[in-house]
Amino acid sequence: MSRNEIPRTGMTESILLQLPLRVLLGGVFVYAAYNKIPAIQSFAEAIKGFQIVDSETHSGLIVMAAFVIPWFELIAGLMLIVGFRARSAALGIGLLLAAFIYALLHVIFTDVDADCSCFGDQNMICGSTVGWCQVIRNTVLLVPTVYLLWRGPGRVSLDQIFGKTEQIPAEPGKATQTITYDVDADASRA
């Protein structure tokens, strides 16, 4: 007798919402990494321009961030697209977005003239100079991130193929619950 675990997330939601959001959000970060990885020097200069840390005393930290952040974006973005450890990827992207928003606000409130370099030399919606547009854009990106962190990758994902069924709250405030469905028993009743 085999037992198939049926996640609470429906196929409709998976196909119409979770999959497109994963591809969209993951694609944005893969695109950002694609533009940054060949231009690490420019990205390091952009981080330096944010003036969050003293570039004279913490130049090593800035260079390390310039090498690690694009690869983090690429790995997390790809994991989100294929739905592998998708909640971890969504959490990572969410934390990265929060850090970016903090950095952008720091630049805005300290009146520093800095380039975003969010997508390398490319601009997505906003201009290249840091402003409120980038803050709003990143805040908007947080919405699908939180949704995917809450609902998981859906049924069309590697997590599902590898048997990592989703365990989501059956009702708000209650403990997580996995619903199982006994196929053979149901067939014998019929």
């Binding site: 690690v68 952040i69 690869w71 983090f72 790995i75 997390a76 994991m79 450890r85 909640r87 971890s88 990827a89 959490l91 990572g92 934390l95």
Partner: peptide
């Protein structure tokens, strides 16, 4: 959390 740490490590 362990998945997130794995991503950070890989990065």
């Amino acid at each position: 959390t362990s998945g997130l740490l794995s991503i950070i490590g890989a990065a």
